[in-house]
Simulated scan of single mutants.
Amino acid sequence: MTTPTSSDGSSSSGRPSPDHDPWAPPSSAAGGAEVPRLPYPLPTAQPRNGMGITALVLGLVGIGLGVFILLFWISWLPALLAVIFGSIGLSQVRKGLATNRAMAVSGLVMGIVGLLIAAGTGVFMVVTVKHAVDHARAKVKEVKREAKEEREEAAAEEKARHLPFGKSYTFGDGLKVTVAKPTPFTPDAFANGHAKGNKAVQVTITVVNTGKERVSIETGLPDVNDADGASAQLVIDGSGRQKVLTGYLLPGRKAVGKYAFSLPPTAADRAEVEFSPDVMRWDDAYWSGSTR
């Protein structure tokens, strides 16, 4: 016995006919009948939001690195990648392949800002380093110039302290010293320091106080060298003709010291006298010349 079927393919008992195709479109006889739903949903494409997220992260990294002056030289790379990935992410949003437009735009903007920060920091570092180098070079030049000036001043001072007999040299305390050309000296019979055959000379030293305060003279004894550079022997006798400079010298006053020295005959034609009115404060000045 055959069960009658309806126009939609189902039997009168409600069961679908074995010959009915469930995937076939409804017949026109169905009219406005409801279209049957599929037994399972169709798969939907997932949005491609990875580029926008990556751009945002790289943009933050680029800005973060750019803030640290010591790391600016690597901040441009993540910032540049953020611009690239952000642009790709926006392109995917326009094509409907991604949904995170805000992230892509933020990553792109942060990438651009990171590049600007990296460029600005780089310029700042270049200017800073150049300024530091220029300052260091200027300092080195200044030190060299000062050292040269000091050497020239020392050389000039050294030259000024070497004078011929009869010239004057003024020391820092205002004492003006003049060493006269040595004159012949005849020791008495009781002289000490003069060998027979040597030439004895007398060295006269005049000191004038050109300052406004009294000055102490603490000279010790002058040193005399002969033409060979050997130290001459100090002559001491009982004639009373020798006078040692010592004590205080008032402003405008003058003191004269006289000393005798014995020179060997082979080196008695020239002599050099070293003298300072205060050996603890001032370097010696030098007077030299012929003794003839």
Rank of each mutant, 00 (worst) to 15 (best):
M1R: 08
T2Y: 10
T2W: 07
T3F: 10
T5Q: 14
S7G: 15
S17F: 05
P18N: 07
P18L: 14
D21A: 06
P26Q: 13
S27P: 14
A30C: 15
G31R: 07
G32K: 11
A33Q: 10
V35L: 08
V35S: 05
V35E: 10
L38V: 09
T44Y: 07
P47R: 12
M51C: 06
G52N: 08
I53P: 05
L58A: 12
L58S: 02
L60H: 02
G62D: 00
I63A: 06
G64P: 06
L65Q: 04
F72A: 13
I74G: 04
L77R: 01
L77E: 02
A79D: 00
L80D: 00
L81S: 05
A82D: 00
V83I: 11
F85H: 07
G86E: 06
G86M: 04
Q92G: 07
L97H: 13
L97N: 15
T99S: 15
N100S: 12
S106H: 07
S106L: 14
L108S: 09
M110L: 15
M110I: 02
I112W: 04
A118L: 05
A119I: 14
G120W: 02
V127Y: 09
V127P: 05
V129S: 06
A132D: 13
A132Q: 13
V133Y: 06
V140D: 13
R145W: 08
A147S: 10
A147D: 07
E149Y: 09
A154P: 03
A155G: 05
A156K: 12
E157R: 10
E157S: 13
H162Q: 13
H162F: 09
L163F: 04
G166W: 03
G166P: 10
T170Y: 03
T170M: 00
F171K: 03
G172E: 14
L175H: 08
K176R: 15
V177G: 02
V177H: 04
V179R: 00
A180V: 06
A180Y: 11
K181P: 03
P182E: 12
T186W: 03
F190H: 14
N192Q: 14
N192I: 12
A195Q: 14
G197V: 00
G197P: 01
G197S: 03
N198Q: 12
T206Y: 01
V207T: 08
V207Q: 02
N209E: 10
V215F: 06
D223F: 10
D223T: 15
D226Y: 04
A227Y: 04
D228M: 08
G229A: 01
A230W: 07
Q233W: 09
L234C: 05
V235L: 02
R241I: 04
L245R: 03
L245D: 00
G247L: 05
L250S: 12
L250V: 09
R253Y: 06
K254C: 02
Y259P: 07
A260Q: 04
F261A: 01
T266V: 08
D269E: 08
D269Y: 03
D269C: 00
D269T: 09
R270W: 11
A271N: 01
E272C: 07
E274V: 10
M280I: 06
D284F: 09
G289L: 06
T291Q: 03
R292T: 13
